[in-house]
Simulated scan of single mutants.
Amino acid sequence: MTDLTGAHWRKSTRSGDNGGNCVEVAMNLSGVVSVRDSKDSSGPLLTFTTQAWTNFIATAKREGRAS
């Protein structure tokens, strides 16, 4: 299990405050990126290596411009 003691969770500025479909992201000290549902902060996490997360974000940005 990933130790996220003291992790600083961040939510996208595009999420708004309407309780919609949002995720939060945090990086722990060993460089693992964790993602969780903002409505279920004690629920399951997805974890990624820093490189995998960087690749995901780059692809999402690239694909978002293609739409």
Rank of each mutant, 00 (worst) to 15 (best):
M1G: 12
T2W: 14
T2R: 15
T2F: 15
D3M: 01
L4R: 01
G6C: 02
G6H: 00
A7V: 04
H8L: 07
H8S: 05
W9C: 08
W9S: 03
R10P: 00
R10N: 04
R10T: 12
K11W: 03
S12H: 03
T13M: 12
R14D: 13
S15H: 02
G16S: 00
D17W: 01
D17Y: 01
G19Q: 14
G20K: 03
G20P: 01
G20W: 01
N21L: 10
V23I: 15
V23A: 11
V25Y: 04
V25T: 13
M27C: 09
N28V: 02
N28C: 02
L29H: 09
L29K: 13
S30G: 11
S30P: 07
S30Y: 11
S30D: 15
V32K: 02
V32M: 12
V33Q: 10
S34W: 06
S34I: 06
S34C: 14
S34N: 08
S34H: 03
R36F: 13
R36Y: 13
R36N: 11
R36E: 14
D37K: 06
D37L: 04
D37G: 06
S38T: 11
K39Y: 00
D40P: 02
D40L: 03
S41A: 11
S42I: 07
S42D: 15
G43Q: 11
G43N: 10
P44M: 14
P44V: 14
P44W: 05
L45S: 07
L45M: 10
L45E: 10
L45C: 06
L45I: 12
L46H: 02
L46G: 03
F48N: 05
T49M: 00
T50I: 03
T50N: 09
Q51S: 13
Q51L: 14
A52D: 15
A52Q: 08
W53N: 04
W53Y: 07
T54R: 07
T54E: 04
T54I: 07
F56C: 01
I57W: 01
I57C: 01
A58K: 15
T59L: 15
A60T: 06
A60C: 07
A60M: 05
A60I: 06
A60K: 04
K61G: 09
K61N: 09
K61R: 10
K61C: 10
E63I: 09
G64M: 11
G64F: 05
R65I: 09
R65C: 09
R65P: 06
A66L: 06
S67N: 10
